[in-house]
């Protein structure tokens, strides 16, 4: 017979736990290296950019969940009444959002936010963060709505839903407690991990696009510093070009880790975070056999 392993050992031995440790370890390792070898202003900019990116991505996860939950309940309510015009209007709006490429939608959203910042209508940095997150959530939300509606559909096809209803249990309790909380939280959490990855990716991509100058209305001055905008800075770009230089001049490679740290760190942070989030999501799905 196998003996039960301690929970921590069990967690770390799974792919998701292992990659979480790798990610945290990589962040610490990189932090120490940069602290020792990167100049102070650049080091502070990277920390600032990383925290901002992380914060916006986490806020986006929260807003995505909240918005998707409200929309799902609205769909369920409007779909169960006799007159379904509200249901069709909501479906049309959701499909409209779905039809816009996420990156384009967010880009236009950021242009609007930057206009508000420029006009002095946004009093603090926190409001800017919140608006950026809401903007991003609006375009990621359809994926989560689909998941939540699929979970409800699955259980309404079984006797489960009706058996609880005929006992007089309110359908809001059945949906929120019995379906979402008790039977879908693993699926939802898995989806939120990928939402976090999407938010990081979109944030970096949009900020990069904005910062390299595709938009004349928005620039790095109007929006908070993120990993994407840091990557687009001239010195980061030179650091990235230096990586290419090592292909023809391998002897130059050791200098990358001392003289081109800003661009290298930003690129590494983006890559390791996205890779780790992807692996954590896969590992979590494997652990729970989703």
């Amino acid at each position: 017979m196998k003996t039960a392993r301690p929970p921590l050992v069990k967690f770390v031995s799974g792919k998701d736990g292992r990659w979480l440790c790798i990610w945290i370890g990589a962040l610490f390792g990189l932090g120490i290296w940069d602290y020792l070898f990167l100049n102070r202003p650049a080091f502070e900019r990277i920390i600032n950019g990383f925290i901002n990116t992380l914060f916006i991505a986490l806020l986006s996860v929260g807003f995505t969940l909240a918005m998707a939950w409200i929309m799902t309940l609205a769909f369920h309510r409007l779909g169960s009444v006799k007159k379904r015009s509200g249901f069709y209007v909501l479906s049309f709006l959701l499909n409209l959002i779905r039809s816009i490429p996420q990156i384009v939608g967010i880009l236009f959203g950021y242009i609007g936010i930057a206009a508000l910042v420029t006009a002095g209508l946004l009093p603090g940095k926190a409001i800017t963060f919140i608006l950026m997150s809401i903007c991003m959530s609006g375009f990621i939300m359809p994926e989560v709505i689909d998941l939540l509606r699929e979970r409800i559909d699955h259980y309404t096809k079984l006797d489960f839903f009706n058996a609880l209803r005929v006992c007089g249990v309110s359908q809001w309790r059945i949906i929120n407690f019995d379906i979402f909380w008790k039977n879908s939280r693993i699926h939802i959490l898995n989806k939120l991990i990928s939402v976090f990855g999407s938010a990081m990716f979109l944030q970096c991509s949009v900020d990069f696009i904005i910062s390299v100058g595709l938009s004349s209305d928005v620039n790095a001055v109007t929006l908070p510093t993120t990993l994407g905008s840091l990557l687009a800075k001239m010195d980061s770009k030179q650091d990235i070009l230096a990586i290419g230089n090592t292909l023809t001049n391998p002897a130059y490679m050791p200098q990358l880790f001392f003289q081109h740290l800003q661009g290298l760190t930003v690129a590494f942070l983006i890559v390791i975070t996205l890779l780790a989030v992807y692996q954590i999501s896969c590992g979590y799905a494997e652990r729970h056999r989703l």
Binding site: D159, F160, A163, L164, V166, V169, K182, N183
Partner: peptide
Amino acid sequence: AGMVFQHADESLNLASTVRETFKGLP
């Protein structure tokens, strides 16, 4: 009125506890 469905496996919330099975009833 109340009804007991024929497949207990489908009718009960398998992820709930025995105690929680009686919560939410009117």
